[in-house]
């Protein structure tokens, strides 16, 4: 028995969003009487952290603390339209819509504050802690909760804003096939190190090095988590899980539950090192591109290449099972 080490790499360019027949997301922001800013969306946070990231976008644009932002994604039936959280589009589309809505709401907020303070709105700024103050004279200030109260009960104004980001539809040019399908592209490269047991055919992924260029990382900790959680899923696709060969033709065979559908557990994860490169995208919210789906992509071919490097077996069908490794080794010996 020999344990063969190998190293392989793969890279991916990944589109942020797609254009369908036009790809919009809307956001509506309004202030409550207490100075909370409700961001109403139909965009679903399925665990990727969308609510956090768009709350950051709203807080940054409004110039108020994140605690004063309330993200409401309650109901896709009645909320402002969103195409959905897929295609790594959430941060980009929804973030842009939220920034646009927040700019409009901020203008009203400053105007209400200006009327209360009897100054010009153009001379006001936010201090990020909840106050609107006069530039150069920070003692002249008013808290957003007082601004909201004045707007509701004194001035009769609605501190609110509307935002939409639309990626217009773009059909291919018939002659050239040229089209404009996405908003920007993120790039990544993964290097995988594996160990192949030439007697059992078992592949172990030892280490992965991930590099991602994703525009501005709005929330670096969540980006790192997305990268490494996605890489785990890549490892899982590469060497563990499969609904093949029966899905989707038949669900009567093959794995139907967690007992049969294998995924790597905590003891089977590689050590990961991840680096984020930030090159802000001109059309992204604060320069962000999407980072979602792409994180599971590069690890798979990187692992396939590392297996090839380790033992000369070129596998093209996932998952790379012990059986497929052993058959490949047999074929090499026979050749």
């Amino acid at each position: 028995m020999t344990l063969l080490r190998g190293r392989g790499y793969a890279s991916v360019n990944y589109p942020t969003g797609m254009n369908l027949g036009g790809d919009p997301s809307q956001a509506i922001i309004h202030a409550t009487t207490m100075g909370g800013f409700v961001v109403t969306l139909s965009s679903v946070d399925l665990g990727q952290g969308l609510k956090t990231v768009v709350a950051q976008c709203a807080a940054e644009t409004l110039g108020i603390p994140m605690e004063n932002v309330i993200i409401d994604t309650a109901d896709t039936d009645t909320g402002p339209h969103c195409m959905g959280t897929f295609a790594s589009r959430g941060t980009h589309r929804v973030g842009n819509a939220v920034i646009m809505a927040a700019r409009e709401a901020r203008e009203v907020m400053l105007q209400v504050a200006a009327d209360e303070l009897e100054v010009d709105a153009g001379d006001l700024e936010t201090d990020g802690t909840g106050f609107v103050r006069l530039k150069g004279s920070p003692a002249t200030k008013i808290h957003i909760s007082d601004i909201a109260l004045a707007a509701h009960f004194k001035q009769g104004k609605s501190i609110s804003g509307r935002g939409i980001f639309l990626k217009e539809r773009s059909y291919p040019v018939p002659e050239t096939g040229e089209m404009d399908p996405d908003s920007c592209q993120a790039h990544a490269c993964t290097v995988a190190e594996v160990e192949v047991d030439d007697e059992t055919g078992i592949v172990t992924v030892l280490r992965m090095y991930n590099t991602y260029e994703i525009g501005r990382a709005l929330n670096p900790a969540m980006v790192a988590q997305q990268v490494e959680g996605g890489a785990w899923m890549g490892v899982s696709h590469a060497i563990f899980e499969s609904t093949e060969p029966y899905y989707p033709a038949s669900r009567a065979h093959g794995p139907i539950d967690f007992c049969e559908y294998l995924m790597p557990g905590p003891a089977e994860i590689p050590v990961q090192t991840s680096v984020i490169l930030e090159r802000p995208a001109s059309n992204g919210p604060f320069g962000a591109k999407g980072i979602g789906e792409m994180t599971a992509n590069a690890p798979i071919p990187a692992i396939a290449n590392a297996i090839f490097d380790a033992c000369g077996v070129r596998l093209t069908t996932m998952p790379f099972t012990p059986e497929s490794v052993l058959r490949g080794l047999d074929a090499l010996r026979a050749a």
Partner: peptide
């Protein structure tokens, strides 16, 4: 770390890749 791995080996996580949990 091995004992932690064992203690959570019956808990499936589809998102994090386990490392931050451990």
């Amino acid at each position: 770390a091995d004992e932690v791995n064992e203690a959570i080996s019956g808990n499936v996580c589809r998102c994090t890749g386990y490392a931050p949990i451990v």
